[in-house]
Simulated scan of single mutants.
Amino acid sequence: MNNALVTGASGAIGTEISHMLASKGFRLYLHYNTNLTAVKSLQNELKKKYEVPVFIVCADLSKAGGSEVLWNQIQSPLDVFVYNCGSAHFGLLTDFTEKSITETMQLNLLSAISLTKAIVPDMIQKKSGKIIMISSVWGEVGAACETVYSAAKGGLNTFVKALSKELAPSHIQVNGISPGVISTPMMDQFTEEEKRHLADDIPAGRFGEPREVAHAVEFLMSEKADYISGHILSINGSWFT
Rank of each mutant, 00 (worst) to 15 (best):
K49D: 06
S128K: 15
V137T: 09
L92W: 00
S111L: 06
A151W: 11
S164D: 02
K126A: 00
V69K: 07
P169Q: 09
P121D: 12
A168P: 01
V137E: 15
K47V: 15
H171V: 04
Q106K: 11
K161C: 13
Y149V: 03
S136K: 07
K99V: 15
E103L: 07
V137N: 15
A168K: 15
L78K: 06
D79R: 07
Y50T: 00
L115H: 06
Y50E: 14
P53E: 03
E98P: 06
A59E: 05
Y83K: 07
V54D: 13
E68F: 10
L110I: 15
P179K: 15
A162C: 13
I132R: 02
L163I: 04
G91P: 03
E146M: 10
T147K: 04
S164N: 06
N108G: 00
D79F: 10
Q173W: 07
I124C: 09
S111C: 12
V137I: 15
V120Q: 05
G65A: 13
L110W: 02
S87E: 11
N84Y: 01
I113A: 03
L110D: 01
A59R: 01
K153T: 00
K165W: 05
D60T: 12
I131F: 05
G129I: 04
F90P: 10
V69Q: 11
A144V: 05
D95S: 13
D79A: 00
A59W: 10
T102Q: 15
A162F: 04
C145K: 09
L115I: 05
A162V: 01
F81H: 11
P121R: 10
L163W: 11
L156E: 06
I124V: 14
L156V: 08
V69G: 08
P77H: 09
A64P: 02
N157G: 05
Q75H: 02
S128A: 07
L92M: 08
S128I: 04
